[in-house]
Amino acid sequence: MTATDSHVDTHEQEHEYEHPSDRKYVTIALILGALTAIEILLFVLEDDLPRSLVKVGLIGLMIVKFWIVGAYFMHLKFDNKVLTQLFMFGLVLAIVVYFIMLSSFEFSFWNDGIEDPGLPGNS
């Protein structure tokens, strides 16, 4: 058993294969819960705070929550980097492509300076 342990030790140090303990998972979940609470707080205080702060805060918290679940619960942080690259490729591709698509709806009012009344995004 000691032989196995030592083998695993070196393995870990080389590849950072260490999985978090249950206690750490609970801590992470509590952090996620706290972040959700802050999100809801931002929503409640929506009218008292600057709009842009609320929006940026909410999007920032969303990204942090996304990252925590991906890195720890889906253990991308401890896994082969190829998996992170593949997943990030899909994610970034989706964000870029759909962002361009939605912007092109917004940009269409550049047509001769006439705003198209039929565009739902601009109403």
């Binding site: 190829v82 593949l86 997943f87 899909g90 591709l93 964000i95 492509v97 739902p120 995004g121």
Partner: peptide
């Protein structure tokens, strides 16, 4: 590997649905 490929692919699926909602969000 296959599971992660599927999840990466699913990003595009939900991306399209979320974008569709954003387009109509004010209606």
């Amino acid at each position: 590997l296959a599971m992660w490929l599927f999840l990466a692919s699913d990003c595009l699926l939900f991306g399209a649905l979320i974008s569709t909602f954003l387009l109509y969000r004010t209606n």
